[in-house]
Structures are given as C-alpha cells and as structure tokens.
Design a protein around this nucleic acid. Sequence first.
DNA 1: AGACGTTAGTTGTATATACATTGATTGTAT
DNA 2: ATACAATCAATGTATATACAACTAACGTCT
Lengths: 152, 152
Amino acid sequence: MPPTSPRSPRIELPSALESRWQALRRLKGTIDDALDRALQAEHGISVSEYAALAALTYSDGGGHLRQQVLADAIPLQQSSLSRLVSRLERTGLTERFHCPTDRRGVYTQITDRGREVVAAARATYVDVLERSLAAASGDPELAPLVEHFRRT
Amino acid sequence: MPPTSPRSPRIELPSALESRWQALRRLKGTIDDALDRALQAEHGISVSEYAALAALTYSDGGGHLRQQVLADAIPLQQSSLSRLVSRLERTGLTERFHCPTDRRGVYTQITDRGREVVAAARATYVDVLERSLAAASGDPELAPLVEHFRRT
DNA sequence: AGACGTTAGTTGTATATACATTGATTGTAT
DNA sequence: ATACAATCAATGTATATACAACTAACGTCT
C-alpha cells in the first residue's frame, strides 16, 4: 500500500445539484477524452470533427448544413466552426458552397470521402462510448448519470 | 420571420445512445459557457478555477488536496492543473506546500481569500446553473437530460 | 550503499477554441 | 435611391488545455 495513502478524499459539494453537475462535467471529460483518442488513432479525426461529419450525414437535407447550425449542433462557437470546417475541407471530407438565395450564407457539404469516414468511424465511436459508459458506471458518483443512458 | 427561414433542421442520429450523448455535450457546452461568463464577469474566475476552489473548500481535509486529486475532480490533465494552480497562486487564492511525508507530492491549500471568493461565487454559480437548466428544459432534445437534475 | 523502475509535479511546445473585429450581403426605412 | 442596422462567415489575436519530455523523490532489490 502506498505510504501517503492517496485514498481519494471526499469532496462533498453542498448540494445535490452541484454534485450532479460536477459529475456531468467529469463524465463528459473522461468519455470525450477516450473518444478523441480512439477516433484520432483509428480515423485521424477529433470528436468535434466526428460530430460535425455525423451531423451532416444524418441531417435531413442532402448532407449540407449552415455553419451556424453546425456550430450549435457540435457545439462550438461560430469562429471555431469556421476553422474546423476549413480543416475538414483541407482533408477533402467536406466542401463549402454559397447559399443560392442568400450569398452571405455558406453551406458545408459532406463529400463521399466524408461519408465513408463517418461510416467507418461510427463503429469506433459507438463501441468506445458504450465501453466508457460501462467503465464509468463503476464510479458511484457517476453511476446515476450513466443510468440515464441505459434507459430505453 | 427571417427570410432564409433558419428553421433548425432535423439531425436524427442513428441511435438513441448517440442522440443522448450529443445532448449531454450540448448541455455541458451551453451551461458551462454561461457559468464561465458569469463567474468571469462577477468574480474574475473561470469555471475550472471555481471547480478547483470548490473542491478544496468542500474537501474533508483542511482545504488542501494533492494536485492529481484536483485534476481528477475538475476534471483536467495534470499539466493543465499545474498551470491552473499557478494562476490561483498568483492571485493569492491558493498556496502550495510540499507533502511532509513525501516530498514529491504537492498540496494545494486554499487561502482565506480563496474561501471568500468561493463563498461569494457560489451564489452566482448555483443561480446561473439553475437558470440555465430551466432554459435548457425548453429544448426538447435536452429536456430528458435536464430532468435528471430535477429529480430528488 | 548503489542502481533501477515508478510516481509526482513542472515545463517546452503545439493547437483547438474563444473573443473581437472585419468584410460582405441582406432587408428596411427614409 | 440611399443610408442604416442586422446577419453570416472569416480572420487577427489571445489563451487554456493537451501531449511529451524532463526533474526530483521514493521504494525496492541485490
């Protein structure tokens, strides 16, 4: 047994609300971290980039969305999304085209390559997500929130 | 009505699990954003910094924790926490001292000033958190998750 | 006692994201 | 028509965070 005995000390926040919100932050951190590593290693994209590609793929249009809509979905600030789309464009996963009725607007369109990447990456994504949730359910502080995802 | 009619388009992810996880990401994003703005404006600290100060304040010791423990609680990488603690130290909200039994270890100790800041900032934190959750419950995609925080 | 592997924390470096500003386009009011 | 406010995206800039390498201290083994 370690000498300093780093028994994880109790951190009991004053209210259940604060505890739960902190639990959400921790769950989000650990799982998105795991997703990021897996997606980056196996498919060369980040979680944000996957989220963008998935939003485009599963949108009800033809795989194109306004920048601001994408920003809300991921979620990301508009400026950050602009750069994210630039990265995706550079690697050929999306393309930009102007909105025909409002030339201020820009649509981001997923390419065939982009669709292939999403199709392949989704297996990784769902797998890691499920495993990570299962792992997190071992933490008593996170378990109640994890339950939310288990319910039908 | 706006001309381009930015009716938010449907983005229907393939499985409920994916939808729910994306909902968690969106909820975390919007609310932590609101918390960040409010805490920064009214108390000059970020959400991460508040989380660190709160963890120290409500730990069962005398307001001191190991760096790694803090990193897990916030959550943050160890290197990021090192810099965060440096910021807090620079503004006099925490102090560092070596663990007497293991000189590798470093405790971060909250100061009286730090405790005052937490005490004041907590009102803002809880208030904004509650308001933000209430606002988010209007979004049908987020509502189920928000319910998790309403339950006793 | 000395060597080795492990652990805790810090620092160099890179980058994704946020904030503020700018440029371009649109709609509206005068 | 012209001016003006609003909207959408891109870009300049700042910074918090992540990753990797490093230093210091500890424990163990021989």
